[in-house]
Simulated scan of single mutants.
Amino acid sequence: MPHWSYWSDDAESIHNISRSKLESEGIDSTTVAYSLNRILSGQVVYCDALHWDSFWCNALFSDTGIHQEFELRDIQVLIGGSENHLRAFINEREKLEDSDKFTVHRALDDAKIIRKALEVALAGRHE
């Protein structure tokens, strides 16, 4: 959106997406909001960084004037259980991030990392 003028050089280096690439290849915010609602309507989306994900989701839907049709929750709700299960999730996530099999801070690879770490944590709940 035109008023989204803030840019973080730190975020650019973390995500490896330049402002020029975003501007030339990015998708219009209204299209993104409608697409998220179409795909996720009525669903719960679990996040490992709920604070940030909520912030950006609220900015997107508020600024486009579109009602968000899905809910965000902290992944810890899924992990549940004890501190040991959370620790298992964190340890596995860190191991996968350090494995050189994934590009960290790229959406698809981050989702794969989270899923695999969550599988490990949930497997530990049933033992």
Rank of each mutant, 00 (worst) to 15 (best):
L108N: 14
A123H: 14
E23R: 13
L118S: 03
L60T: 02
S41P: 03
L78Q: 05
N16R: 15
L22Q: 13
V104L: 08
E23I: 12
H15R: 09
I90G: 00
K116L: 14
C47L: 03
K112I: 03
D98R: 15
L78G: 03
K112C: 08
S99D: 06
H51K: 15
C47F: 01
A49P: 02
V45G: 02
A123T: 11
L78Y: 03
C57N: 04
A123F: 09
A121H: 00
K101R: 13
F70E: 01
A33M: 02
D9W: 13
E127P: 07
Q76P: 00
I17C: 11
L50G: 03
F70D: 00
C57M: 12
I66M: 06
R106S: 07
E25M: 07
F61E: 01
I27E: 09
R73W: 04
D63K: 06
L22V: 11
S35V: 04
A33H: 00
K95C: 08
A33Q: 00
S8T: 05
I90Q: 08
E25Y: 06
E127I: 10
I14V: 14
I66S: 03
A11W: 07
I79H: 00
K21P: 01
P2S: 13
P2N: 13
S41G: 14
A107W: 09
E23W: 10
L86W: 14
H3K: 10
A123C: 10
I14K: 12
L86F: 14
L40G: 00
L118A: 04
Y46W: 10
R87V: 05
D9A: 15
S54D: 08
I113D: 00
G65E: 04
F102Y: 15
L22G: 09
Q76C: 10
Q43D: 07
R19V: 05
R38W: 09
V120M: 05
I75V: 11
D100K: 14
L78S: 05
L122R: 04
S13C: 14
I14N: 11
A33I: 00
N84Y: 08
T103R: 08
Y6C: 07
A107S: 15
M1W: 09
W7H: 14
D109F: 06
L40Q: 01
L108P: 04
I14C: 09
Q68T: 02
A33C: 06
C47W: 00
I14Q: 14
H85Y: 12
S24Q: 14
D48W: 03
H67I: 06
D110N: 04
A111C: 14
I27W: 07
F61P: 00
L78I: 10
S5V: 15
S8R: 05
L86D: 02
I113H: 00
E94N: 15
A33S: 05
A88W: 00
E94A: 15
E12Q: 15
D100Q: 13
A111K: 05
L122S: 03
V32L: 12
I14E: 12
I27R: 12
G65Q: 06
K116R: 14
W52E: 13
Y34D: 03
N84G: 09
R106K: 15
W7C: 07
